[in-house]
């Protein structure tokens, strides 16, 4: 499972980095989205990968922490998803505004001279 997750994160990051280095704004925003998925998975994995263990402790009494998943990264990931989604949406609006104002979807707002 670790290998699959690591490979998944790796693919997402490498595609994301390649895309944000591209000259078109659409590629940049897709790249940023892929990177943020990768980061979300990464945060999640920092709580250690476990299967079939609940993150919520059952009321009072002492319990064995090893039988439970770490709930904190899950909470962090939720926050990160929401914030990342909102800022990416905002970026999308700016991207469209730039397209409308400059008439091109190049990140510098003008086509490179050939």
């Amino acid at each position: 499972m670790e290998l699959v997750l690591a490979l998944g994160i790796g693919f997402l990051v490498s595609s994301g980095v390649w895309l944000i280095l591209r000259p078109r704004t659409y590629q940049v925003i897709i790249g940023l989205s892929l990177l943020s998925y990768a980061v979300n998975l990464f945060i999640f994995s920092m709580g250690r990968l476990v299967v079939d263990r609940p993150p919520v402790l059952p009321g009072a009494g002492t319990v064995d922490p090893a039988a439970y998943a770490d709930p904190l990264p899950q909470a962090l990931v939720l926050t990160a998803i929401v914030i990342g989604f909102a800022t990416t949406a905002l970026f999308l609006v700016v991207l469209l505004a730039a397209r409308g104002l400059t008439g091109t979807d190049h990140v510098d707002g003008r086509e490179p001279e050939r």
Partner: peptide, 17 residues
Amino acid sequence: RVRAGLHYIAMNLLAAL
């Protein structure tokens, strides 16, 4: 402003990641 803002936002989104 929009052109500069585009770069500013992209940089800061990367920094946030």
